[in-house]
Amino acid sequence: MLLAIDTSAGTSVAVVDRDGGVLAQRGTPDAMRHAEVIGELITEALAAAGVAPGRLSGVAAGMGPGPYTGLRVGIAAARTFALGIRRPFVPVPSHDAVAWAHLASGGAPAVQIVTDARRREFAVSEYLGLDADGLPVRAAGPVLVPRDEVPAFDGVRLDAAEIPAGGVGMLAELAFAAGRLPLADDAAIYLREPDVTPSPGKRVTR
């Protein structure tokens, strides 16, 4: 049983079980209030699933891509929750979770996942079906592209405004069962260098 958190779009928290599926999922699409809602959503998801923290075997987190400020809240929360219950932290690429949910429910095998990356850009990943273990096969991405230059793709384009944590958690369960962890590095997927504008010392007299 895993707690799963994704804040790469809104905030989504789920409790999942390999056999029982998504036991509970709570969330909000609000992309501005991750820090406010994260604690209550964790509490609510656990209560709705009827699961005490000590019964969890790990904590999965969507590592992005997504707007950084919100993304970090979920990753930070997942890491300290895992620390608190002394169980592993399981990083998952957020696009993989969306692709998996689409593919596992019988969606078209070739799928292009598109999410908001701010600054008039999208983050894009492409997948070609599920492999023998039932994990999505990523063929490209995630990369950033200008919004009007999303590459042509021979398949379905799926614009995801929300990333359900249930998918993050179930994909982590599946990968664990198949001995395929880790699915990602334990680092946020930023895709951009930090925005720094070192102000050159400017003259005040002429």
Partner: peptide, 23 residues
Amino acid sequence: LAGALMVGVGAAKALAVSLDVPI
């Protein structure tokens, strides 16, 4: 700094909930 504060706030809330202690 808002973005910096949020990392601590998210982490602290999750830690408190995981331990079932007040924040």
